[in-house]
Design a protein around this nucleic acid. Structure first.
Lengths: 201, 201
DNA sequence: TTTTGCGAATGACAATTGTCATGCGGCGAT
DNA sequence: ATCGCCGCATGACAATTGTCATTCGCAAAA
């Protein structure tokens, strides 16, 4: 009895390559390939695979959003996140969304099939690089701070951000100042870099 | 007679998957797999494959630097860049470095083997998405402007950048001002974003 | 009723950013 | 020799950023 898997990955080349990698395994069958989050959700609900292997950053819906929606709908399909992001914010969010596995693209290819088998048998699999507690550092930013910092990270001035978010310029500056302080940065650019690095943005 | 290929890609999972994808092809043989640029150069000089398939962003040396070094040493190995970066600056740099192919990870998996065969038979292969002239827009930044902008993009203040590069603060501000103007941005953050987006940073 | 906490706003001030004009020294071409 | 170009520097000034103190309105809790 083969483990049925749907794969979601927006880079088509990588998607095809991952499918090729798994088709080599005698006990794994790829039943669907999705290029974006919405397609991933559809294929999963349609095929009801044992497992969904998904990237995070994809068009339409992120892999985390798909996992959360499957959880909300009580789907029995288990979710493994396969991502570039070795960042605490993403791991925390993935676990909250009901993911049973979190693997890095930096891991050896040989570990993928094994991870799939383990998650299929009911286990939880976290990439060793992320397994330590230090990687689950709490995100200190409030939603408003995050929102404001996102715009600042693109180069928007405080006035522009204020107009976009229907706030006063002073309030925007206050939120930025608070975010900068919480992240131990010395300006908005550095704050954005730190938050991005930790998966909080 | 199989086409021999070395693959270079710093994400181990993707590397293994690409190798699996190519090993399916009856006329292609993967003779080496490298996790960084230096290893890619070593394996290529050692195995003298028909082709090197390489990513751009890798530790030790970038794929572009490897291509340039192979060109400098007169190596007959042809280079295909396989990358996320659909940006004019990178395409131009890749061609300058002697690459015979430039493919996007967004391309369908089925196109990879075909591209390898075409490059092997002496053709040049550019991903259709990049084939139009608009994508070879010239980089307007001087080396100094780029250098200064890189530091600014990390959050460094003008004074910090000046100390790092042994310039005066005013000179740093002049270079940034010039870069901002050339890129049509309104501040350093936006300038950095634009330059990064176009592959100029 | 009063008290507390929260999100948002205002205002003052110092520091930093971005623009622009100008000048200097070095180098290569004429 | 002069001229033009380039990289770098200085200085002035306005705009923006970041910090901090304070206040307001609203809702929930006591």
């Amino acid at each position: 009895m083969k483990i049925s898997v749907v794969i979601a990955e927006d880079q088509s080349m990588v998607l095809g390559a991952l499918a090729a990698l798994l088709e080599i395994e005698h006990d794994i069958r790829v039943v669907g390939q999705a290029l974006n989050g919405k397609e991933a959700l559809q294929l999963t609900l349609q095929h009801k695979p044992d497992l969904l292997l998904t990237d995070i950053e994809m068009p339409e819906m992120s892999g985390l959003e798909v996992a959360a929606e499957l959880k909300r709908q009580g789907s029995p399909t288990r979710v493994i996140i396969l991502t570039t992001f070795a960042r605490s914010g993403y791991l925390r969010r993935a676990l909250d969304a009901g993911a049973s596995g979190y693997l890095l693209k930096d891991s050896p290819a040989a570990t993928l099939a094994d991870a799939i088998r383990r998650v299929h048998s009911g286990r939880r699999v976290i990439d060793p690089e992320l397994a330590t507690e230090a990687w689950t550092e709490a995100d200190p930013l409030s939603d408003r701070e995050r929102q404001v910092l996102r715009h600042a990270a693109e180069g928007a001035t405080s006035i522009e951000i204020a107009a976009t978010l229907h706030l006063s310029e002073g309030t925007v500056r206050n939120y930025l100042s608070e975010a900068i302080s919480k992240l131990g940065a010395s300006n908005r650019v550095e704050a954005a870099r730190i938050a991005r690095m930790k998966g909080w943005l």
